[in-house]
Design a protein around this nucleic acid. Sequence first.
DNA 1: GTCGCGATAGACTGATCGGTATAGACGGAT
DNA 2: ATCCGTCTATACCGATCAGTCTATCGCGAC
Lengths: 192, 192
Amino acid sequence: MARGEKADSRRRILDTAAELFYREGVRGVGVDRIAAESGVAKMTLYYQFRSKDELVAAWLRRRDEEWMSWLESAVERRDGSRLLAVFDALGEWFETPSFRGCTFINAHAELGSSHPAAAEIVASHKRSLAEYLANLARREGVAEPDALARELLLLVDGAIVTASIQGDSRIADDARQAAAKVIAGYGLAAQA
Amino acid sequence: MARGEKADSRRRILDTAAELFYREGVRGVGVDRIAAESGVAKMTLYYQFRSKDELVAAWLRRRDEEWMSWLESAVERRDGSRLLAVFDALGEWFETPSFRGCTFINAHAELGSSHPAAAEIVASHKRSLAEYLANLARREGVAEPDALARELLLLVDGAIVTASIQGDSRIADDARQAAAKVIAGYGLAAQA
DNA sequence: GTCGCGATAGACTGATCGGTATAGACGGAT
DNA sequence: ATCCGTCTATACCGATCAGTCTATCGCGAC
């Protein structure tokens, strides 16, 4: 490994942890297993991360960036109302075979206050999402973008949770229709 | 213990398990601790329940009945739109100090498919809630009660999750306002 | 009075948990 | 040539996990 080079093992550990934590929960996956499935010695994991908690935090931070980027590009890729496009993007996501809900909602549900750093990353992620929705609303000329964003966030999170529990990706359509009515209530005609 | 009498220890175990599972997660609480904090011998727990999984299922089943009854009575207690009263009830719940989100969403997030019986109870609970909302909508003369109920369910679950993550009970007001717009979109003027 | 049911205490299993200790191997930079 | 950062293997730690076993006790029903 060259001097200034970032360790490849760190990325591999994070990749493995991301998949396992998402699929089976943080407490459902031990560090031994993450190391083994990463093809890495356990000591390497503890060389790259001080503790399992720190690995969890690093995983959530990376997932935040990754998911927000995915949403932004999925929305920009579409025509019509950007706000409604959010729900079309969700619908695609829900159809992914590995879909198992929102990483952050799930982590918060599982860990609660037992992992304060994780709780803060989760809250920060949801603030980012609300801010993103508010920016979309501003772009569409809504008078109260923050209020609309808060209400749409409820539909987004509700849809993710419900799609995961019911295993039905059509929930995204319900959310989209509800969103259209909420947007209309803010004086903006839905244009798609 | 009289012959036909239900065991009191069973209830105490369920009470303790309910509090600990909700507060710290299913995998965050061991059976030894549940037995100890119930003031019951570990063997008594395994006399009353075949396994931890069965205890988890019994807890979720009881919580389903308990929570639905709470919601129904909290809604009936209010004036004005019953559908909007749901969100007032949620707002009260969110202010409870021990509030930590929805038992069922949390259990599903933590356990996923590793506990199929739990997953079914969770899905069934959400179906009951949707059905209850549909009945309220029918009572208020909405033309498409099931569609409205599905959309309101997204707001309910979104509000619960968001209130838990942000630790802000005012989320219930946002959900209530969004609900009013969704209801209005179904041709019913909000009357409270 | 005795039978059976609910419950008791406490020791025990094998597995897994997060995390540590030790000591060495490899390769690039100086 | 040597040093350092990365990574390796392996063994180990005490704690906790879910679950089992044994042996006994209190008490109400009959």
